[in-house]
């Protein structure tokens, strides 16, 4: 059956068989052939993304993560939250109505790596910032089933008990700068203090954070604990900034009708 279908291609087959028969004797030719064949597609699709200007929108007020938020992001990655939560609202009507304006390229411009995700075992988190109170977030992470009985999300109570490690943050910001996030020397030097300051309102350190990262920076006792800065502080600070790094999406997209 197959043979009759393929008959019209006999000539092509013959040519291919002859050249191939020769090539088959040379493992180096084979290697070169594979490399060439396998490089074209990737090159055509990836290289232009770096050079075409309108791939990523130009937004001057796009904010970078504070050290505390970045630490929260690192914990988000460490715990594998991305395995269940996407951070990419697609341009489909139901997604926009459920989660908010669809995600723009610029919103993950400083995300090394991006956390768009591939599976929604839980809801999308791209615009979860300010959707819930800090207190809700903390109680939800301590035990999701206390708030949502049907939830299958793991509980992360230990975040509230674990002191946040600050000592490696300067190195982390420096590495991020090396890959293109515009942290200044001053931000890198003061990273440790800024982490603590953002979780301790009304201190000198807190004011310094606002100076460096802008007056809109949220400075709060994210985890509700006044005695120490925990990993919970970092994670909640990160969750609350999601979708709030720039308001381009809100201003440029027509609101879904009420």
């Amino acid at each position: 059956m197959f043979k009759t279908i393929l008959k019209p291609f006999a000539k092509l087959f013959d040519f291919q068989a002859r050249t191939h028969y020769r090539m088959e004797r040379h493992s180096m030719a084979l290697t070169a052939g594979i490399i060439v064949a396998a490089s074209i597609g990737g090159f055509v699709e990836i290289a232009p993304l770096f050079s075409i200007d309108d791939t990523v929108e130009d937004v001057p007020d796009m904010r970078i993560y504070t050290p505390l938020e970045q630490a929260g992001r690192d914990i988000y990655i460490r715990e594998g939250c991305y395995a269940c939560h996407s951070q990419m609202i697609r341009s489909l009507r139901d997604e926009v109505e459920r989660y908010g304006p669809y995600s723009l390229a610029v919103e993950s411009k400083y995300d090394h790596p991006m956390l768009w995700g591939s599976k929604r075992t839980g809801p999308d988190l791209a615009r979860v910032g300010d959707k819930f109170s800090d207190d809700w977030q903390v109680r939800h992470l301590v035990n999701p089933r206390n708030l949502v009985p049907e939830s299958v999300m793991p509980q992360y109570a230990f975040l509230l008990e674990t002191e946040l490690k600050t000592s490696d943050m300067p190195g982390r910001l420096a590495a991020l700068r090396a890959v293109g996030v515009p942290y200044t020397d001053e931000m890198i030097e003061n990273a440790e203090n800024d982490m603590k300051g953002q979780a301790r309102p009304e201190t000198e350190a807190a004011d310094a954070v606002m100076d460096r990262y802008g007056d809109d920076t949220a400075v709060r006792f994210f985890d509700g604990r006044r005695d120490r800065v925990t990993e919970m502080d970092a994670v909640v600070a990160y969750l609350q900034i999601l979708g709030n790094l720039t308001d381009l999406a809100q201003t440029s997209q027509p609101q879904a009708e009420e």
Partner: peptide, 10 residues
């Protein structure tokens, strides 16, 4: 930290 970010990284 990944060398790429955002769209290019995706």
């Amino acid at each position: 930290y990944s060398l790429f970010s955002g769209v290019q990284d995706a």
